[in-house]
Design a protein around this nucleic acid. Sequence first.
DNA 1: TTGTAGGCGTTATCAT
DNA 2: ATGATAACGCCTACAA
Lengths: 339, 339
Amino acid sequence: MNNRLRNSDKITMDVIAQNLQVSKTTVSRAISGKGRVGRETRDRVLKYIASLGYKPNSMARALAGSKTYNIGVVIPDTDERGGAPFFKDCLIGVTAASAKRDYETVLAVISDGNYNNLERLVNGRRVDGLVLTRGDKNGKIVSYLREQAMPFVLIGRNSDDDVYQIDSDQKDGCCELTARMLRESPKGVALLSGPKDMDVERLRYEGYAQAFTLAGLKVDESLVFWDSEKKLDEALDKILESGVNCVACSDDIICLKVMEALKQRGVSVPGRLQVVSFFDSENLESNDVPVTSLHVDTKVLSQKAGDLLIDVLDGKNPDLCNYAKCSVLYRSSFRNNAG
Amino acid sequence: MNNRLRNSDKITMDVIAQNLQVSKTTVSRAISGKGRVGRETRDRVLKYIASLGYKPNSMARALAGSKTYNIGVVIPDTDERGGAPFFKDCLIGVTAASAKRDYETVLAVISDGNYNNLERLVNGRRVDGLVLTRGDKNGKIVSYLREQAMPFVLIGRNSDDDVYQIDSDQKDGCCELTARMLRESPKGVALLSGPKDMDVERLRYEGYAQAFTLAGLKVDESLVFWDSEKKLDEALDKILESGVNCVACSDDIICLKVMEALKQRGVSVPGRLQVVSFFDSENLESNDVPVTSLHVDTKVLSQKAGDLLIDVLDGKNPDLCNYAKCSVLYRSSFRNNAG
DNA sequence: TTGTAGGCGTTATCAT
DNA sequence: ATGATAACGCCTACAA
């Protein structure tokens, strides 16, 4: 009783198969590319469905293959002021990755301890995997997803955990930028760092140091100031005395203070001293004297995260840790004179 | 050959039905609430699935009911500086609405003329409807969705189109805030408006005027300045001469200029003149003298949009135009002395 | 290379 | 009030 040829109705594989006088298995194979089909038959099918504008019903495909072709992105409801662009870029990036591989991106919003939204997604198996951005302070989400056997990838986290993660290659970036400065300032480059016990600060220092090594030089530790926010004036005194004309700040907060202090002192930037930051922010860009800094493209970062997740879902076995290259944004506090 | 009782395996309605010695139809009815089931039976089923932590497979449900229980949100890839918080709040708001009614939120990113992402969503029928935020400059999306018979709702658009939309009730808000000022400034309230040919400007004026009417007063048109950015100094001269001590600016741009000009002239705010804006922005909040203004909560707005869309999907027939109330954020440029 | 038939886990339509 | 059974549209052994 289902043997009427209905062309005008909703188009399904059945309809296509009948109109083309083949079985729907053949149609399915032609579309998915899995299973052998005669070249000629496949082309015929493909051309036909293209002319029809046919798209397989994703829900049916999901049910049959027990795969949703959805990936979730977890973002926090509220965030520190200025956090919105970061999360929006994460969403854009992940969506770019999903789109390329025929996945959709669905949202999980967590509002400070309330994971209902995420749980519905996971428990209802409405996604195949997740990308975590931030907001999992205590690792609760990570352990939850583990026990639920739900694949996930972390963005911008540099933890030693045994999880898939993707971060910017800060060490490499710091090395590159420092190397660039060393060419400009043969007498050396000073470093105004944060607390020594922070992973990220040590990582940046390593990159900084590596540039010296690669250039056949040695770091002058008397020009490396840890926890420099505390005794900034003192540090600046030493730097100005030392004769170097380049200084790197490990993040934007420190850097803004440095720029302010130098302004107070009437030290011209970049004339007397060139300044860069190992971490970018809008404030650095719109500063009085715009500051050259190491930049992380969140969209690229999160697109890689999405790609990584889908690789995992596709059964490939990628590395746990992955890195996205940083780039240097040259602004007037340190110009790329090399061109 | 499917008659084995497997409890340990994946739990489905079949398993539940067998374990409970009822048919899966009954289980389905108990869960959905549709179709009559004995109170006792239903409770038994409900309690059992709760103890199991069972959640129906959403893909199967989607296929059977040809409803995805997904709603899409369209956001632009790039946006004017400062746009990110708006779009993020839209996503949060819509997700809040979906969550409450057991929908998921999926993303459609459009990057300046590239609608691939949206088309995949629509063409693959991976969503039941869409919420449009902005970026549909020329109405292309609207007409596309119409011809695809895909339900949608517009956020923050005040168009006369025959489409579902939700906007902030600016007229009402302007009226309320003006009324509040009139109580403070019996001699009247001046208005520094934008171009007269803009819908939104006229709307704000209407609210402003309505406050006068309700108070049994008449608008002094010599204190209403259209396109006031052009001849601000002149306008301020007249206002200061007039003796009124309250002025409303129709948006944040104008308002910031006014605040700056008044500062230059040494006019104390709110001492000599009280100032409000009919449109809020972060700059108003962090201004030298923070400015009282009409505020639209994007999250609330978009949550209403989500709700509206789901109402439509549920076959209810809501009004085309819906409004979210504005609220007044009292800051020091005009204090809520009554409160 | 191609086709047949059964299954994915629900919902909906009939009966009973 | 409850149950059997057929969709829903696609995927995939298994067969031919």
